[in-house]
Nucleic acid binder design. Structure first.
Lengths: 260, 260
DNA sequence: CGTTCCCTTGACACTGTTCAACACTGGTGG
DNA sequence: CCACCAGTGTTGAACAGTGTCAAGGGAACG
């Protein structure tokens, strides 16, 4: 542990399980090479913490935000509404992720963001991000890489929604969630805590609530997963990976150790 | 027209309708602010031209390329195969686009690229791209922005495939193609030349060939489009936009003038 | 204790797929 | 020059996968 000067804001921070910058650094180190100098610079970022309840809109389509945010705790999603009022979730974001980092270079939001579970966000001003990008090319590259990985995930979702049937599709989505939560250090004892509604899950995989319900039942029947309350456990990880046709290379993790 | 020294490679270039760098600069100017200095630097990029026939794989999943490419002519797509052998096209790319620009920071390709029509590519070494990014922050920002727009398109595709029915979905796809081709200056007399198979189109919208065929028929029946050979004409652009629930803001064009 | 949200179940309708067949086109080789 | 072939577009019919509607039950919450 490095010794750092303690500012008033850090007093509040210290009440939380980790310094908010640590969550960000952990994530970036998971996808790129970050030197200690770079990490120190990141620790200097002003991150304003903010708690959000579940199902609260964080940004909506058309907004022109002046800051981005890092997910410190909980699960966040990006979504879009069609003209018919149907909702499609386009991606999930877990601790460490920067859902709207694209806001640095795309002024107007083309999708909305909402919390799926109670959580904690860390707001970072675009100006601060831009200046750290100018001063630290490796950090800029890491941020760019982060947005590229988001894009890779979108690509996978397009094929998931477009070409896999309900069974494989939900299995695939569960695999992705488990791997990402695991990578973010949010899985204990092989059990993921996912207080997510089946309706919301349906909005992610492009299925109706009823069908999600039946598909999850099928996955349970086949002994691939177990659910109790908001807890999800992968009983048969290789089987789930097979059922979901899941290959984690698209997540571009530096250490792709997905053993479970 | 600026006067520039003519190198041997430029002699070959001059046989083509435009200098390959011009296609790239036109595109970047369409999405970002590029100064004349930046443009001059881009003109200095070594771009190796290469003709490709239709339906030729350019890169395949797992490759670790050392260069990216710009589409100079024709239509290119990125796609993925599922374990069941089904194909999903995840995006189209037209003149000016940089389909695999993410290769700069993601070493291993998570999807494949293929030409959909006969075309011309311009190969640019990653090292050259990296060095121009280091020297010209605005160019770096433009490239980053380009990849962010790709991501925005993926997001739209997820919702298109996940939540719109066949009719709206194909209408939406046609709208996107027309706007992007138009923006790339590849539409004349309100007619797009799209020598694309209905099977390939089905792989893009996540529908079977048969259903694509019937849906296109429905769009023609309703007077929205006309097709003859490889030519596509939008007979009723507002109607097509309405049918496709199409809002071009996700393309993040600097001048979103989609009037047709 | 009622309300609300969510999960669950059944019946049924509908969208889209699969299979099979045929027409049209352009290319190729005898 | 013609026969053949492969690729593409088109059509019909049967079928599978998913959505919709409706209703009940359980848990959380005010």
């Amino acid at each position: 542990m490095q010794v750092r000067p303690v500012t008033p804001t850090e007093v509040t921070k210290s009440l939380c399980p980790a310094f908010s910058s640590d969550v960000l650094i952990r994530k970036l180190r998971g996808i790129a090479d970050i030197s200690d100098d770079d990490a120190a610079a990141l620790e200097g970022l002003t991150i304003q913490e903010k708690d959000v309840p579940a199902n609260r809109d964080i940004l909506i389509q058309g907004d022109r935000p002046t800051n981005s945010f890092v997910v410190l705790d909980g699960v966040v999603c990006s979504y879009k509404h069609t003209g018919e009022g149907k909702r499609q979730i386009t991606s999930f974001f877990v601790a460490g992720d920067l859902p709207d980092l694209h806001g640095i270079h795309l002024t107007v939001m083309d999708c909305s963001f909402s919390s799926m579970t109670p959580g904690r966000l860390g707001l970072i001003r675009h100006s601060a991000l831009r200046s750290i990008c100018e001063q630290r090319p490796r950090v800029a590259a890491a941020f760019w890489r982060s947005t590229l990985i988001d894009a890779a995930i979108y690509r996978e979702w397009v094929t998931n929604v477009g070409r896999r049937d309900a069974y494989a599709r939900t299995a695939h989505m569960l695999c992705e969630l488990i791997v990402r939560l695991r990578f973010a250090g949010r899985i204990e004892d092989h059990v993921a805590d996912l207080p997510i509604t089946q309706a919301a899950f349906g909005d992610a995989v492009g299925l109706s609530v009823v069908h999600v319900n039946r598909t999850l039942q099928a996955l349970r029947r086949d002994g691939l997963i177990a659910m109790s309350g908001t807890k999800l456990r992968a009983l048969d990880w290789p089987g789930l990976v097979r059922a979901g046709d899941f290959d984690p290379t698209y997540l571009h993790l530096k250490d792709p150790d997905v053993a479970f």
